[in-house]
Simulated assay, not measured.
Amino acid sequence: MIERIYLDETGNTLPYRNLAREACLLEAVGVGECILYLWQNQRTVVIGRNQNAWKECRMEQLEADGGHLVRRLSGGGAVYHDLGNLNFTFLVREEDYDVSRQLEVLVGAVNRLGIHAEKTGRNDVTVDGRKISGNAFYRADGHCYHHGTILIDVDKASLSAYLNVSAAKLRSKGVDSVKARVANLTDFRPGVTVEQVRQALAGAFGEVYGLSPERFPEERLDRAVLSRQEETFRSWDWRFGRKIPFTSELSERYDWGEVCLQFAVNGGIVTDVQAYSDAMDQELVAALPGLLKGCRYGGAPLAEAVGQLPQPDSGAERMVQDLQRLLVERCTG
Rank of each mutant, 00 (worst) to 15 (best):
G84Q: 10
N85M: 07
L86M: 03
L86Q: 08
L86H: 07
L86E: 03
F88V: 12
F88D: 09
F88L: 11
F88H: 12
F88P: 04
T89P: 08
T89H: 06
T89V: 08
F90K: 11
F90S: 10
L91H: 06
R93E: 04
R93A: 03
R93L: 05
E94S: 14
E94W: 00
E95W: 05
D96I: 03
Y97D: 12
Y97S: 12
D98R: 03
V99L: 06
S100N: 02
S100F: 06
R101V: 04
R101D: 08
R101M: 07
L103D: 01
V105P: 01
V105C: 01
V105T: 06
V107M: 07
G108P: 02
G108N: 09
G108D: 03
V110L: 11
N111F: 05
R112W: 07
R112F: 05
R112Y: 05
R112C: 02
R112I: 12
G114A: 12
I115P: 10
I115K: 12
I115E: 05
H116N: 14
H116Y: 13
H116E: 15
A117K: 08
A117I: 00
A117D: 09
E118D: 09
E118A: 11
K119R: 13
K119V: 08
T120Q: 15
G121I: 02
G121A: 01
R122S: 02
R122W: 00
N123H: 09
D124F: 10
D124G: 05
D124W: 03
T126A: 15
V127N: 09
D128H: 11
D128L: 13
G129N: 07
S133V: 00
G134I: 03
G134L: 01
N135D: 07
N135W: 12
N135H: 14
N135A: 09
N135S: 15
A136G: 06
R139G: 14
A140E: 13
A140L: 13
A140F: 05
D141V: 11
D141P: 04
G142L: 05
G142A: 12
H143K: 15
H143A: 15
Y145A: 00
Y145L: 12
H146F: 11
H147R: 07
H147L: 02
H147K: 10
G148W: 13
T149P: 12
L151I: 07
L151Q: 08
I152M: 06
D153C: 14
V154W: 01
V154P: 02
V154A: 10
V154D: 03
D155N: 15
D155G: 11
A157P: 03
A157C: 13
S158F: 02
S158W: 10
S158L: 14
L159R: 04
L159H: 06
L159D: 00
S160K: 03
A161F: 08
Y162C: 11
Y162T: 12
L163N: 05
L163M: 15
N164F: 06
N164P: 07
V165W: 00
